[in-house]
Simulated assay, not measured.
Amino acid sequence: MHTLLVLYPEPTDRAAFAAYYEQTHLPLCAKLPGVQEVNYALGIAEPGAGPYYGCFRATFANAAALDAAMSSPEGRAVEADVPNYATGGATVLSFPTTELSLG
């Protein structure tokens, strides 16, 4: 499995970020070819209390699947959309992950 993790610092306007992110950006992310799972969290720290306002996680079968998704028209649309809401910027991490069996 391969994970794409995006960390969002505090935006200029939390309400505007959340509205745009949930109504416009996340639907674009859901269209990424090969995406297996998408999770996100907003408001993970109070303003000024932590380095990040939000995070996004998407999983793919492997690094090649993530690369293919981000090279696709849908992936280019996702990347091009980030400046429309992420006024605090974004840190993007990509890494292989291993699932722990709980049974």
Rank of each mutant, 00 (worst) to 15 (best):
L7A: 15
P11I: 09
P11Q: 09
P11N: 10
P11R: 12
T12N: 06
D13V: 05
A18R: 14
Y20I: 01
Y20F: 15
Y21E: 12
Y21N: 06
E22D: 14
E22M: 10
E22A: 13
Q23A: 15
C29H: 03
K31T: 05
L32S: 07
P33Q: 07
G34V: 06
Q36P: 03
E37M: 13
V38Q: 11
A41T: 02
A41F: 00
A41Q: 07
G43W: 01
G48Y: 10
G48S: 03
G50S: 06
P51K: 13
P51Y: 02
Y52H: 14
G54Q: 05
C55M: 13
F56R: 06
R57V: 12
A58I: 07
T59M: 07
T59S: 14
A61Q: 08
N62T: 02
A63Y: 00
A63S: 10
A64H: 03
D67V: 00
A68H: 01
A68P: 01
S71P: 00
P73R: 09
G75K: 12
R76C: 02
V78W: 06
V78T: 06
V78Y: 09
V78L: 13
V78M: 12
E79A: 12
P83D: 02
A86E: 04
A86Y: 04
T87G: 11
G89P: 01
T91M: 09
S94T: 11
F95H: 02
T97W: 02
T97V: 15
T98D: 02
T98F: 12
E99D: 05
E99Q: 05
L100H: 12
L100W: 03
L100K: 05
L100G: 08
